[in-house]
Design a protein around this nucleic acid. Structure first.
Length: 827
DNA sequence: TGTTCCGTGTTTTTT
DNA sequence: ACACGGAACA
């Protein structure tokens, strides 16, 4: 029926073996860069081509981005199928798959189908509350330690009770009590954490034979990617799903296991053949990605791990350049070295910015780097922890939606009941919450009856009632989007409950709200048009928002979640038009962007509910949002880089204490499991590089304000001498026993004092006159956008200006390199 | 009640 | 050095 020629085109014999193995367990041990993604994608297509129904195929990936890409590629390969069926293959991450199934089987899992999924910061809040409730001080048991203990326990499918039974020492008894309080709080909030998604799914499969059989028959062919990073709960889930039909295909690479700290169990992949007898094993050892030099160095490094299955990667690629190793005096100089190397690659090797990446062990290392990249006018994008969905205004807006779906969500309620400030202080909030608990009603319901709550000020009570009224209005208007919450609380709902006519009668929009034009949507902004929306005086034009695009003819109307969000922002006045500071402009832009995300969601998912939307935004990770941004260097952690590749990779912070991290130093008498994971992390980083690899470090690094002296990483010393060239800033002798560079040391030319780090070559093309700047004038920077000059220091070629950029805040720039464009004369 | 300022802890890595 | 939470003030 299908064109299997196409599906098997340009695959190696080993890859074909993996692709065409249809029935029975299969383990694909795929070395770095061995074409694994391609192999499993083709395998899905192959299964369909031999007549297996797409609905019976489940592919589990590590990130949502990987899932999206696979869905797309599989779709492209399945052109022989009608479009409708192409989308029937389930491609998901473990977490999103479990979330989906737990909603489907909520009753059996003992969950409310509209449960919230807590993100990291919500989890931390709950942990603090739990400690509070259990009467344990945060210094006796730090919230982070509690959370890690809970997470470990849940990975083993143990809840508070079993934890208490198994651990009886003093510290564990405290943890057990806090754990129980934590679980109680989750229940009250109708919330689950990330680990719960896995644990509850595993328990459901274990305890409910009927559902287990049903899902086994639904997912007859299962593919699991990045199998080396699965934890015990995930193992149990795939094991139970695959038990009946035994068609499980696991792919992974033990040498790339870097999530042991999160409970990943290397035994899952190492013992696959014991778990699934008669498993076929295919090894992919040819590397298509890197040069011989890079591959040789990475292989040499990983050979130092003892707990390891031997494996030899090889490649037909060119020999390639030596790996540069550059050590600097301190982290600022290291950052300048990085900027110069990037610039060189761009200027001399004609490499595009988006072909380069800088990788580091911990997020905090990106700070200095950003400064020097800005100074050198190198465009970059950062994939990091504090990003879009962690922004306060974004979390606030999402909390409104969560509360709408789930009026018992205390975390969201506490977050936004007084945002924007409406006179309901902490005391009033406590009273409302207690009232809700007493009367066994949800929090929004409690607000509706605020007049009956003793101890509230008139203002607070009125505000609470109004809040409830607005919530009810939204709920009514968008009932078709929100239905799941009703499902659980109302028995045998008839359709009329959700019909439109109930809106006005049940929950009228209060009159006073008429001053907000609730029917006029915000303009949706695309990234490119955002700049235009910002007036030169630094504030978004309120009229632009209120009367969007009438002049452009087509007035776009918002649908689905985007429309709901738009309504929420207006109804609850989440955008303050009076504040006209740069900060507020950014807030507004973030919220507009959030509307865009919602609109996008509705486009891709026309029948998507609010719950599904919220789930998506909670489960996306940083890497998922990594855009293929043309013309920007990518900065990210080594963990985030897994699965990616770049022609040039620069790894920074190659020091003892940073990579490897100091906590991984072998404790006396223990094995060095942690150290081996650090080595794998370095291995993953190195094998991301296709053409060029540069490793850098600093001999002194600022930590908590003061400089600490550092030694070069042992991993550098483990690289074969004929693969590397050393550059060393200083002749300093190093402490005995530290890996040193006594042989063949070339010295990096030191930068003359007082000169900027970037070579004068970079000045070519810059036509900026340094004399033309003064306080108050508006300028545009190619990367940071528009800003106002706050201070200007004239100093010849080294003139600097402090500029307050609307988007990125205040920066100090060297005029000669910053390529600033004058916008007006200022005032 | 809301805002500002100061002292404290904080840095692994993430679904 | 920085961000956050608590205390003091408006």
């Amino acid at each position: 029926m299908a064109d299997t020629i196409d599906i098997l085109a340009d695959l190696t014999p080993e890859q074909i073996e993996a692709v065409t193995h249809v029935d029975g367990p299969l383990l694909v041990l795929a070395g770095a860069g061995s074409g694994k993604t391609r192999t499993i994608t083709r395998r899905v297509a192959y299964l369909v081509s031999v007549g297996i129904a797409p609905v019976n195929i489940l592919a589990v990936t590590f990130t949502n981005k990987a899932a999206g890409e696979m869905r797309q590629r599989v779709g492209e390969l399945l052109t022989f199928l009608p479009g409708r069926q192409r989308a029937d293959v389930t491609v998901a991450t473990f977490h999103s798959l479990c979330a989906r199934l737990l909603r489907e089987f909520a009753a059996a899992a003992g969950l409310d189908p509209s449960f919230n999924i807590l993100d990291g910061s919500d989890q931390a809040k709950i942990a603090k509350l739990a400690l509070d409730r259990a009467g344990i001080s945060a210094e006796l048991l730090p919230p982070a330690r509690l959370l890690s203990a809970i997470s470990k326990s849940k990975n083993r499918l143990q809840l508070a009770e079993q934890f208490a039974a198994q651990n009886t020492d003093f510290s564990s008894r405290n943890i057990a009590r806090a754990f129980a309080a934590y679980e109680q709080l989750l229940k009250e909030n109708k919330a689950v954490d990330f680990d719960d998604l896995l644990l509850r799914m595993a328990m459901l499969l274990r305890d409910n034979a009927e559902i287990r059989t049903q899902l086994q028959d639904r997912f007859q062919y299962i593919l699991i990617d990045e199998y080396q990073d699965t934890n015990h709960a995930q193992f149990l889930i795939c094991h139970m799903l695959a038990l009946k039909h035994q068609n499980i295909c696991a792919t992974g690479d033990p040498d790339q296991s870097i999530y042991g700290w999160r409970g990943a169990n290397l035994g899952n992949i190492l013992d696959f053949e014991q778990h699934f007898p008669n498993a076929k094993v295919v090894r992919l050892e040819q590397n298509y990605r890197s040069t011989k030099t890079i591959l040789k160095a990475a292989s040499a490094l990983i050979t130092n791990n003892v707990q390891r299955k031997n494996k030899s990667l090889w490649t037909n690629n060119e020999q390639g350049a030596l790996i540069k190793i550059i050590f600097a005096a301190d982290e600022r100089e290291e950052a300048r070295n990085v900027a110069r190397e990037l610039r060189d690659m761009f200027d001399k090797q004609k490499m595009r910015w988006d072909e380069m990446a800088v990788l580091y062990r911990i997020n905090s290392l990106s700070r200095v780097l950003e400064d020097s990249l800005m100074e050198a006018a190198i465009p970059y994008q950062i994939v990091r922890g504090t990003e879009f969905y962690a922004r306060k205004e974004v979390k606030d807006a999402l909390a409104y939606m969560r509360l709408l779906v789930n009026p018992s969500d205390r975390v969201s309620f506490e977050r936004i009941i007084n945002v924007p400030t409406r006179g309901i202080g902490p005391g009033s909030v406590d009273r409302i919450i207690s009232f809700a608990q007493e009367k066994q009603i949800n929090l929004v319901e409690a607000c509706r009856h605020a007049q009956e709550i003793g101890g509230l000020t008139k203002k607070a009570a009125a505000a609470a009632v109004l809040f409830a009224t607005h919530m009810a209005a939204c709920r009514a208007e968008f009932s078709s989007l929100i239905n799941q919450a009703e499902d659980s609380s109302v028995e045998n709902i008839d359709g009329a409950e959700f019909s439109d006519d109930i809106d006005d009668a049940d929950a009228p929009v209060p009159d006073f709200a008429a001053d907000v034009d609730v029917n006029e949507p915000f303009p949706t902004v695309s990234a490119s048009s955002q700049e235009e929306e910002i007036g030169l005086d630094g504030a978004i034009d309120a009229d632009e928002i209120q009367n969007p695009d009438s002049s452009r003819g087509k007035s776009r109307s918002l649908h689905g979640v985007a429309a709901l969000m738009d309504r929420l922002l207006r109804l609850f006045k989440l955008i303050d038009h009076d504040k006209r500071e740069a900060e507020e402009v950014e807030r507004v832009n973030n919220l507009l962007e959030l509307i865009n995300v919602a609109a996008e969601f509705t486009t891709q998912n026309p029948t998507g509910t609010l719950t599904e939307y919220l789930e998506q935004v909670t489960l996306v990770s940083d890497v998922d949002k990594l855009k293929d941004e043309r013309g920007a260097v990518t900065l990210m952690t080594l963990h985030a880089a897994k699965g990616l590749e770049f022609p040039l990779v620069i790894m920074i912070g190659l020091e003892e204490g940073t990579l490897p991290m100091s906590r991984s130093f072998a404790k006396s008498g223990r094995d060095d499991t942690d150290m081996e994971e650090e080595r794998r992390l370095a291995f993953v980083g190195m094998t991301r590089a296709k053409k060029r690899l540069i490793l850098t470090g600093a001999l002194s690094r600022m930590t908590r304000g003061y400089g600490e002296s550092r030694n070069p990483s042992r991993f550098v010393a483990e690289l074969p001498k004929d693969c590397i060239e050393l550059f060393d800033a200083f002749r300093q002798s190093r402490p005995a026993g530290s890996p040193g560079f006594r042989d063949n040391v070339q010295y990096y030319p030191r930068r003359p004092q007082g000169l900027p780090s970037v070579t004068p070559d970079t000045l070519r093309g810059s036509t900026t006159s340094t004399a033309a700047f003064h306080r108050g004038m508006l300028v545009r920077h190619p990367i940071f956008g528009v800003g106002r000059v706050e201070e200007y220091f004239e100093n010849g070629d080294n003139s600097k200006a402090v500029i307050d950029f609307r988007k990125v805040g205040r920066k100090t720039l060297v005029i000669a390199f910053a390529k600033l464009e004058r916008l007006d004369a200022g005032s």
